[in-house]
Amino acid sequence: MATIKDVANLAGVAVSTASYALNNSPRVSQETKEKVLAAAKQLNYQPNGIARDLKLSKTNTIGLILSDLSGPFYSELIKGVQDITIANGYDLIAISSLGGKNSTAVKFLKEKRADGIIILAHNIDNNLIISAAREDMPIVLLDRPLKAKYVLNIQVDNEGGAYKAVEHLIALGHRKIVYLSGPNNSYDNLKRFEGYKKALITHNISFSKRWLYQGNFTKEGGYHAAKLMLLQDDLPDAIFAANDEMAIGVIEAFKEAGLKIGEDVALVGFDDIQLAKYVNPSLTTVKQPMKEIGVLAAQQIFQALNGNFSTDYILLETELIIRDSCGSSRKI
């Protein structure tokens, strides 16, 4: 990554002059400003935060970058991170990655405005993460494996959790099982899809693309996908939704159509958000240890800031929580 010294060298000026020009100071001429700005653009120079290149002190802040701050999935994760940051006398800033390359999260990463960052956002580019991570700003990545210096990896066993969910549906006698997918660029979604297919293969059930629907990890996406299923002549026996929010959308759509989840169609979600046990019927789902993940991620940040960088790839187990949305067994 280019530094202000590189910009100064390319523009043929002193570092102090380059700094004045980049900060639009009246101390330098317009001609010099244009020359420095052209050099900065050519080198794709990004200033390093509020203190720019002069950042010498810690911010006492940990950043948490999430795909969407509004989703119920994140509350336990945030609480886990917050418990550890408060205990260490740090502030926590949660930032949304909505908007991709133009998001506040991307700017936050480029400008290195925290002492450590935790990321659960599939639309943050790997190259940006690699370039942003450094000794005084380690990054914990929760949604994909990435081997890079100063990047720590904690993931949930998405494939194993999905396998448990689909095997449960198969054990109940279901064969026509929909996979309700999250975003195609989500590593978590990819691993859950692999677990789904692996369970089918284990039980000699052929995978058919007709049982693949897109829900984009949102309640609205699950609702619209269920509406599409209801338009087909042949309903599935069961639905495995790759997260609980989509599953709740499915429940709503089937209720509107006069069909009963747990009787007409079985349904399993993934995450075990707080709402899962309160919907009607209560949702069978794969539980992620979200608070534990948050606690562990924050602990890894503070260990790294103290010079103890873990190179271990941490994979956390999931648990199948059986409730009412799958009903009783069918005769095969």
Results as ranks from 00 to 15, higher is better:
N184V: 12
A242R: 02
D188K: 04
K164L: 15
Y223M: 04
D234T: 14
Q214M: 08
I201G: 08
Y196A: 05
L228P: 01
L169N: 00
T218E: 11
A171W: 00
Y196K: 08
H203M: 12
E220N: 14
L228T: 13
S181M: 12
I177Y: 03
A165F: 01
D237S: 09
A162D: 07
I205R: 07
D188M: 03
F207Q: 07
H174D: 08
D233L: 13
A225Y: 03
H174V: 08
Y179N: 13
L212Q: 12
L231D: 13
V178S: 03
E194W: 11
L172V: 05
D234G: 03
I239R: 05
A171S: 14
A165V: 02
N189P: 04
V166E: 02
Y187H: 14
F240K: 06
A199Q: 05
Q232R: 15
N216H: 13
P183E: 10
H168L: 04
G182F: 00
V166W: 00
Q232F: 06
A241D: 10
R192M: 04
M229Y: 08
H203Q: 15
F240G: 08
G195S: 12
E220W: 09
T202H: 13
F217T: 02
K191L: 14
E220Q: 14
I239W: 04
E194G: 07
L180F: 06
H203C: 11
H168G: 04
L169R: 00
G173N: 03
A162R: 03
I201C: 11
G195K: 08
S181I: 05
W211A: 00
H224L: 15
A171M: 08
K197A: 12
A238Q: 03
L172W: 00
A165W: 01
K197Y: 10
G195E: 10
G195C: 10
F193N: 05
K164W: 06
A165M: 04
A241G: 08
F207D: 07
I177V: 12
A165T: 02
K197N: 14
I205V: 13
L169D: 00
F193V: 00
I205L: 15
W211Q: 01
A162S: 15
Y187R: 12
R210V: 12
M229W: 09
H174C: 10
L235N: 08
L230W: 10
I205Y: 09
G173K: 01
R175C: 08
I239T: 10
V178M: 04
L212R: 07
R192H: 11
Y187V: 06
Y213S: 09
N185S: 15
V166L: 02
